[in-house]
């Protein structure tokens, strides 16, 4: 990590006041704190839960989580693909960010 250096000419901007404007992608996630979000993960997994915390790696803590795992079974005789979903629930879940593909906040229409 020590080999990543900010460009020396770039002055460090002052911390931006908390706003509702989406100026960088992580703002989308910040504005979803305390809201139920949808998370798509590697391995055909999806989560729906209330966002309690996140960081720049997209590590997250979600509450009242429903996990949906999509499994493709191959019928041994017909070789047909049978798609099956498994659902699991947990009260409080830490999710490691490296598995995250997509985060979608509740629609703010």
């Amino acid at each position: 990590m020590s080999d990543v250096v900010p460009a020396p000419t770039t002055a460090v901007p002052a911390p931006a006041p908390e706003t509702n404007a989406v100026e960088e992608p992580l703002d989308l996630v910040r504005l979803s704190l305390d809201e139920r979000i949808y998370v798509k993960l590697r391995g055909d997994r999806e989560l729906r839960g209330k966002l309690h915390a996140y960081d720049g790696h997209l590590n997250m803590v979600l509450g009242d989580v429903e996990e949906t795992i999509t499994v493709v079974d191959i019928n041994e005789e017909t070789y047909e693909e049978v798609i099956r979903t498994v659902k699991r629930n947990s009260e409080m879940l830490f999710v490691r960010g490296d598995g995250v593909i997509l985060v979608s906040p509740p629609s703010r229409a």
Binding site: L102, S104, P105, S107
Partner: peptide, 12 residues
């Protein structure tokens, strides 16, 4: 999705 955050390449 109305809005979507897609995780990018990062150094870690």
């Amino acid at each position: 999705y109305g809005d979507a955050f897609i995780r990018g390449n990062n150094c870690y």
